[in-house]
Simulated assay, not measured.
Amino acid sequence: MEFKLSSPAFNNGTQIPSRYTCDGENINPHLVIHGVPAKTKSLALLVEDPDAPAGLWVHWVMWNMPPDTTEIREHTVPFGAKEGLNTRRKHGYDGPCPPSGSHRYFFRLFALDQKLELKADAGKEQLEEAMMTHILATTELMGTYSRTNEGPM
């Protein structure tokens, strides 16, 4: 089975419902993980917006998810997983909140051949450095969000 990340909340390339953004409850959407490679020891997740005016905006940094994780339920973190700092310098999920226009949000999932030893204040850069030579597979799910044409939910 192919390593894949999906969500019952939105399809790849479609609009993320406002519930998962700063215009709603600002909670993480339900994510489903398929086909984790056999030699995986841990999973890591990065959620990023490359369209932010100030440059890449990091919305979620998470590592050491157990390899048997099949889903990340809405508004939860898998048991044993660690959350690092996002661009707001806070732990946890920070939902889409573009100042204008439509932005793309990439949920990138990594299968790793080991658990990672990172400090609690680690961010995207530290996670990427620690993962560099340990990535077995990667997959991504991309959603968009635009505050200007968001209708009532």
Rank of each mutant, 00 (worst) to 15 (best):
L127E: 08
L127F: 00
F106E: 07
E71R: 01
L45E: 03
L116M: 03
E117S: 13
N26L: 05
L116T: 01
T70K: 13
A44F: 02
V36E: 03
E2H: 03
F107Q: 01
G101M: 14
H103C: 00
N86R: 01
T69W: 06
R104P: 00
L85F: 09
P96A: 15
N64Q: 12
H34P: 01
E71L: 02
K124P: 02
T148N: 15
L56W: 01
E117N: 12
H34E: 10
N149C: 11
K4S: 02
L85S: 10
D49N: 14
L56Y: 00
G55T: 01
A137F: 10
M65G: 13
E71H: 11
H134F: 04
E125H: 11
K4R: 06
N11G: 08
E129G: 10
H59C: 14
W63C: 15
R88A: 10
T148S: 15
P152S: 13
C97T: 00
N12D: 15
T76R: 11
S146F: 12
D23H: 05
G13K: 02
G95N: 09
A111I: 04
R147E: 12
D49Q: 12
V36D: 08
G35Y: 04
P67K: 04
P66Y: 03
Y145A: 06
N28K: 05
A122S: 15
A137D: 11
K115R: 07
E2F: 00
T21S: 07
H75S: 06
P96M: 13
V77I: 15
R19H: 03
K39M: 10
W60A: 14
E128R: 12
T70E: 03
F79D: 15
I135L: 12
L5Q: 00
T148M: 15
E125Y: 11
A9H: 01
L5D: 01
F3W: 04
D23R: 11
G143W: 09
A111N: 00
N11F: 10
N11D: 14
K119S: 10
R88G: 09
P78Y: 10
R104A: 07
C22W: 14
R88N: 15
R104N: 13
A120S: 13
F107N: 07
V36I: 06
E74K: 08
S100Q: 14
H30S: 05
I27W: 12
K82Q: 08
G101D: 05
H91T: 13
G123L: 06
S7M: 03
D23Y: 15
T76N: 04
K4D: 00
S102N: 05
A137Y: 07
T14G: 03
P29N: 00
E140W: 07
E83H: 03
K115G: 01
P78L: 14
R88E: 12
G101S: 11
T70R: 07
T21R: 11
R147W: 09
S18V: 07
A52M: 07
L118W: 00
P152K: 05
A130K: 15
G101C: 11
V36F: 02
L46C: 09
K115F: 02
L56D: 03
L43F: 01
I27N: 03
F10H: 10
L118D: 02
M132P: 00
M131R: 12
D51R: 07
R88S: 06
W60R: 05
N28V: 05
K39R: 14
A44D: 06
P37H: 13
M65S: 13
I16K: 09
A130F: 13
D49W: 07
P98Y: 12
D51M: 14
D113S: 09
L43G: 06
P37C: 15
L116V: 01
M153T: 13
